[in-house]
Amino acid sequence: GKRLNIQLKKGTEGLGFSITSRDVTIGGSAPIYVKNILPRGAAIQDGRLKAGDRLIEVNGVDLVGKSQEEVVSLLRSTKMEGTVSLLVFRQED
């Protein structure tokens, strides 16, 4: 696979993607993946982020050990017109 650095500018329609966690172990944390890209928002305008990408970092914060809720609040904490920096891991087909 490969790592991608993606910067998304948060506009009025938001970042435009949803996340999910897979393989949750009890008391553990699961990897966070991009669930889908919404028809409006920064992600589809940028065009690089894809469903199935694994989020590794948000704005330089390592997501290991973070819950899905914590990751959502990290993403939401970005101000309007601010930039969210994502490091994602993509499995090659």
Score class of each variant (00 low, 15 high):
Met80Arg: 11
Val64Ser: 14
Ile26Leu: 14
Val71Pro: 02
Asn36Val: 07
Leu74Gly: 03
Glu69Arg: 15
Val61Pro: 00
Ile44Pro: 07
Lys50Ala: 11
Arg48His: 06
Asn36Ala: 12
Gly16Ser: 05
Asp62Glu: 03
Ser29Trp: 15
Gly1Asn: 15
Ser85Leu: 05
Gln7Cys: 11
Arg3Ser: 11
Ser29Arg: 09
Leu15Thr: 02
Met80Asn: 07
Ile37Phe: 02
Leu38Gly: 08
Arg48Gln: 07
Val72Cys: 07
Gly28Thr: 11
Asp62Trp: 04
Ile19Met: 05
Gln68Asp: 12
Lys2His: 05
Leu55Phe: 03
Asp46Ala: 02
Thr78Met: 08
Ile32His: 12
Phe89Leu: 11
Leu86Thr: 03
Leu8Trp: 02
Glu81Thr: 10
Arg22His: 13
Asp46Gly: 04
Thr78Ile: 15
Ser67Ala: 07
Ser77Lys: 09
Lys79Ser: 13
Glu57Asp: 06
Val24Cys: 12
Thr25Asp: 14
Val24Glu: 07
Val61Glu: 07
Ser77Trp: 10
Gly60Phe: 02
Gly14Lys: 03
Arg48Glu: 04
Gly14Ser: 04
Val58Leu: 04
Lys79Tyr: 14
Glu69Pro: 07
Ala42His: 04
Asp53Thr: 01
Ala42Asp: 04
Gln68Lys: 09
Gln45Asp: 15
Asp23Ser: 09
Thr83Ile: 12
Lys9Val: 14
Gly41Ile: 01
Gly41Asp: 02
Lys66Val: 06
Gly47Ile: 00
Ser77Leu: 06
Gly41Thr: 02
Asp53Gln: 00
Gly11Ser: 11
Lys79Ile: 07
Leu8Glu: 01
Lys35Ile: 04
Val71Lys: 00
Pro39Ile: 04
Leu63Phe: 03
Thr20Ala: 11
Val88Tyr: 02
Gly14Trp: 00
Thr83Cys: 05
Ile56Trp: 07
Leu15Tyr: 04
Arg3Ile: 15
Ser21Phe: 09
Glu69Thr: 12
Met80Asp: 14
Arg22Lys: 15
Phe17Gln: 03
Gly14Met: 02
Pro39Phe: 04
Ser29Phe: 08
Glu69Leu: 09
Ser21Pro: 06
Asn5Lys: 11
Gly1Arg: 05
Tyr33Glu: 08
Lys9Tyr: 13
Leu86Asp: 00
Leu63Tyr: 00
Leu4Gln: 04
Glu57Gln: 09
Leu74Lys: 03
Thr20Arg: 06
Ile44Ser: 14
Arg22Asn: 15
Thr20Ile: 07
Ile26Ser: 14
Gly65Pro: 02
Thr78Trp: 05
Ile6Ser: 01
Asn36Pro: 00
Asp46Leu: 00
Leu75Met: 07
Arg76Phe: 12
Ala30Thr: 04
Gly60Asn: 07
Gly14Val: 03
Gly52Met: 04
Ser73Asn: 09
Leu63Met: 13
Ala42Lys: 03
Val64Cys: 11
Asp53Lys: 00
Gly60Leu: 01
Ser18Cys: 12
Ala43Ile: 00
Met80Pro: 14
Asp93Cys: 11
Leu38Pro: 02
Gly41Cys: 02
Asn59Gln: 05
Pro39Trp: 07
Asn5Gln: 15
Val88Cys: 07
Pro39Asn: 15
Leu75Ser: 00
Thr20Asn: 06
Asp93Thr: 08
Gly60Val: 00
Ser21Arg: 12
Gly65Lys: 08
Glu13Pro: 04
Lys35Trp: 05
Ala30Gln: 04
Ile32Arg: 01
Val24Gly: 08
Phe17Ser: 00
Ile19Ala: 00
Glu70Pro: 01
Asp93Ala: 09
Gly14Phe: 02
Leu4Cys: 01
Val64Ile: 12
Gln91Trp: 06
Leu8Ser: 01
Leu87Thr: 13
Ile37Lys: 00
Gly14Gln: 03
Gly1Met: 15
Asp46Glu: 02
Gln91Tyr: 08
Gln68Arg: 11
Arg76Ala: 15
Val71Leu: 05
Glu57Val: 04
Gly1Ile: 15
Leu74Arg: 04
Gln7Met: 15
Gly11Pro: 10
Gln7Gly: 08
Ile19Tyr: 00
Tyr33Cys: 05
Ser73Met: 11
Met80Gly: 13
Gly41Pro: 02
Gln91Met: 10
Asp46Arg: 03
Ala42Ile: 03
Gly60Arg: 04
Leu86Met: 05
Val24Met: 08
Leu75Pro: 01
Asn59Lys: 02
Ser29Gly: 15
Leu87Tyr: 12
Ser77Arg: 12
Lys50Phe: 04
Leu86Cys: 01
Ala43His: 00
Ser85Gly: 06
Leu55Cys: 03
Leu8Ala: 02
Ser21Leu: 07
Val84Ile: 09
Thr12Ala: 13
Pro39Glu: 08
Gly52Leu: 03
Gln7Lys: 05
Thr78Gln: 10
Ile56Tyr: 04
Leu74Tyr: 05
Val72Tyr: 08
Gly65Gln: 05
Ser18Ala: 06
Met80Leu: 14
Gly47Tyr: 00
Lys66Gly: 03
Thr20Gln: 12
Ser29Thr: 11
Lys66Cys: 05
Val72Gln: 11
Lys9Leu: 13
Val88Lys: 02
Leu4Met: 15
Ser73Tyr: 09
Ser73Cys: 09
Ser21Met: 10
Leu4Glu: 05
Leu8Cys: 04
Thr78Ser: 09
Lys79His: 15
Leu49Phe: 01
Asp23Leu: 08
Leu87Arg: 09
Ser67Val: 06
Asp62Cys: 13
Gly1Asp: 13
Glu92Thr: 14
Asp53Asn: 01
Val72Gly: 10
Lys9Glu: 07
Gly47Cys: 02
Tyr33Phe: 12
Gly65Arg: 06
Ile6Gln: 03
Thr20Phe: 06
Glu81Asp: 12
Arg90Asp: 03
Pro31Gln: 10
Lys9Cys: 11
Ser85Cys: 08
Leu38Asn: 10
Ile37Tyr: 00
Leu74Val: 05
Ile56Cys: 06
Val88Glu: 03
Ile6Asn: 03
Pro39Thr: 11
Glu70Phe: 14
Ile19Gly: 03
Val84Cys: 08
Ala30Ser: 10
Arg22Met: 08
Gly52Ala: 05
Ser77Pro: 06
Phe89His: 14
Gly47Thr: 04
Gly52Trp: 07
Met80Gln: 14
Gln7Ser: 14
Ser73Gly: 14
Val61Asp: 06
Gln91Ser: 10
Phe89Pro: 02
Asn36Tyr: 08
Val88Arg: 01
Leu74Glu: 06
Lys9Phe: 11
Val24Gln: 11
Leu8Arg: 00
Asn36Met: 14
Ala30Gly: 08
Gln45Gly: 05
Asn59Val: 00
Ile44Leu: 09
Lys9Ala: 08
Leu87Trp: 13
Asn59Thr: 01
Gly14Thr: 03
Val84Met: 04
Leu38Asp: 07
Val72Ser: 12
Ser85Lys: 09
Ile44Lys: 13
Gly27Asp: 15
Asp93Ile: 08
Glu92Pro: 12
Gly11Glu: 07
Val84Tyr: 03
Lys79Arg: 12
Thr12Leu: 13
Arg3Lys: 14
Ser77Asp: 11
Leu55Ala: 00
Ser85Arg: 14
Ser67Tyr: 05
Asp46Lys: 00
Gly1Phe: 15
Ser67Cys: 09
Leu15Pro: 02
Ala43Met: 01
Thr78Pro: 14
Leu15Arg: 03
Glu70Gln: 09
Leu86Pro: 01
Phe89Val: 11
Val61Lys: 07
Ala30Arg: 07
Glu81Gly: 13
Lys35His: 10
Asp62Ile: 05
Ile26His: 13
Leu87Phe: 06
Leu15Phe: 09
Gln45Thr: 12
Gly52His: 05
Ile32Ala: 04
Ile56Lys: 03
Glu57Phe: 06
Ile26Lys: 14
Thr78Phe: 07
Lys2Gly: 07
Arg90Pro: 03
Glu69Ser: 09
Tyr33Ser: 05
Gly1Glu: 08
Phe89Asn: 14
Val61Asn: 05
Val58Ala: 14
Arg48Trp: 01
Asn59Phe: 02
Gln91Arg: 11
Val34Ile: 09
Leu55Met: 05
Arg3His: 11
Val71Thr: 08
Ala30Ile: 06
Arg54Glu: 15
Gly82Tyr: 05
Arg22Thr: 14
Thr83Asp: 05
Val61Cys: 07
Ser21Ile: 09
Leu15Met: 05
Phe17Cys: 03
Ile32Thr: 05
Phe17Trp: 02
Asp62Ser: 12
Ile32Trp: 05
Ile26Thr: 15
Ile32Cys: 14
Glu13Phe: 15
Ser85Asn: 12
Gly14Tyr: 02
Gly52Cys: 00
Ala42Asn: 03
Leu74Trp: 06
Asp93Asn: 14
Gly1Lys: 13
Glu57Lys: 12
Asp93Pro: 11
Glu70Ser: 10
Glu57Asn: 14
Gly47Ala: 05
Gly1Tyr: 15
Asn36Glu: 15
Glu69Gln: 13
Thr83Trp: 09
Phe89Asp: 15
Thr20Ser: 09
Thr25Pro: 13
Ile19Leu: 10
Glu13Trp: 07
Thr12Arg: 12
Ile19Glu: 00
Val71Ser: 03
Glu13Gln: 09
Val61Arg: 08
Asp23Phe: 09
Thr12Tyr: 11
Arg22Gln: 13
Ser77Cys: 14
Ser18Pro: 01
Leu49Gln: 05
Ile26Met: 13
Ile37Ser: 00
Ile56His: 04
Val84Trp: 02
Leu15Ser: 00
Leu74Ala: 05
Val88Ser: 02
Leu75Arg: 00
Tyr33Ile: 12
Gly28His: 13
Glu92Arg: 10
Asp46Thr: 02
Leu38His: 15
Lys2Phe: 15
Val88Ile: 09
Ser67Pro: 11
Val72Pro: 02
Ile44Tyr: 15
Phe17Glu: 01
Val61Phe: 06
Phe89Gly: 15
Lys66Trp: 14
Arg22Trp: 07
Ala51Leu: 05
Leu38Ser: 14
